[in-house]
Write a protein that binds this DNA or RNA. Sequence first.
RNA 1: GGGCCGUUAGCUCAGUUGGCAGAGCACCUGACUUUUAAUCAGGGUGUCGCAGGUUCGAAUCCUGUACGGCCUACCA
Length: 490
Amino acid sequence: MTSRLERVTEQRLNSLKRIRSKGVNPYPHSYYPSHTSADAIALFGRQGESPQSMSLAGRVVARRRMGRMAFLDIRDGSGKIQLCFRRDLLGDEDYEFLQEIDIGDVIGVEGKLFRTRAGEITLEASDFTMLCKSLRPLPEKWHGLADVEKRYRHRYLDLIASEEARSIFRVRSRITAAVRSFLNARGFVEVETPVLQSQAGGALARPFVTHHNALDEDLYLRIALELPLKKLVVGGFDRVYEIGRVFRNEGISVRHNPEFTLLECYQAYADYNDMMNLVEEMVSSVAREITGSTRIVCGGKEIDLAPPWQRRYLRQTIKSYCDIDFEDYPDTASLRSRMGEAGMEVDAAKGRGRLIDELLASFVEPDLIRPTFLLDYPVEMSPLAKRKRDNERLAERFEAFVNGIEVANAFTELNDPVEQRERFQQQLGERVGDEDVEIADEDFLQALEYGMPPTGGLGVGIDRLVMLLTGQQSLREVILFPQLKAKSDD
RNA sequence: GGGCCGUUAGCUCAGUUGGCAGAGCACCUGACUUUUAAUCAGGGUGUCGCAGGUUCGAAUCCUGUACGGCCUACCA
């Protein structure tokens, strides 16, 4: 801490002492405002601007003192409202006590609304209460907090200073609520499954490892929700979903955070076609509920999320972009050499599935701006998906892309327990280098042996969906506390 | 992991050719009963990210390093 900050803090600690010496508790236990600022203003309008006694509470964000009269702005969860304090109404003692209220303090205030000469609806205070003394100066009122690192590390300051930040996280809450009500209305049951698992299955990613002391066992933080949810389908939950945090020990970027929120839902007796309909309906109806329209603006581009979304086959799409038909290269070696011919630097630790993924990521994905389903992925990229009815080399799987970002991944779930066991084996056999592979979960296989009905499954990255619907270009803008490297000072 | 850029007062930012560390907001004192980025008069201010180096002299030039941002590579 440097001296200016120290001095402000010292002044405020002195103010605290003065407050206490007057027998006032600067940190009382509760306060019950009769209205929020937004409700109060709306009510005043509805009642023909007739004054009515009420109480409000919020953080002081501005102060304009003018001798025997002062204006303060407070902000609560609903918005901002101006307060007016007059010496002649409050009396000398209370008006003097106003000196102890600084910008940043939280106060409660009682009074009646009126409209100022400038036309602003304002509460004329008849009494006020210190609810919390603040010891630190807030960010500058006009420019706010511009330092991106400080915005993420001290998100509360960002929220105090930035209406846009407040708005994004309120919208995020409405989005998850809308997704839940969409699924609940269709008979899906929301469940919670373990974050700590003895094996991290359901996706291909490096897990975080931790240790349970009492059991003396290593445990993994989940990388997907898939396997437990499919066990629940076996258990008779025909429509089930979870919105949960998953953890992947991989790179951080504007599109990746080590922990992120995943929606997975499973519908018995459905296939990936049904999941396509479900996801396009869900995303477009959530968008309509949140923004009032299916048209969104992202990175300067207008995108219409209304169904039906474009449907294209992965194989033909990749071929159209880079003239490589992966069906012509049935093994890793031949595909790798073809990609080498095309001038691509190919990582020797990648299997055929990863190579195809690379073709997709580098040639196709950035161009998939309008909502698009890419259909039918090679079986080896999709160990938990059922083979296509007319092509055993492909799986009934799709990924949905909007604005160049993958937002959903779904398949017709593989429910043949013998084939599932083989696919896990095959994954291990074809493993190249230290590539991540799908891990066989014995209890999952047993569950399939008891019998899982034909099922469609869908995964949606909620953070990315929020990015899309709020027009943000970075995942960190939609995650309250994004992962940053630890910093020892401040 | 690689490349580029940034880091100066609580906040937002200037800082010229290497020559006393600056402004606005905020803060303190005073004036002010309709202000609202209030206004007016006055006041105080810093680990120039950190560590070295060059120099009579470094916020400024050089080296290293930490953190962050963007691009890139991998993953959703």
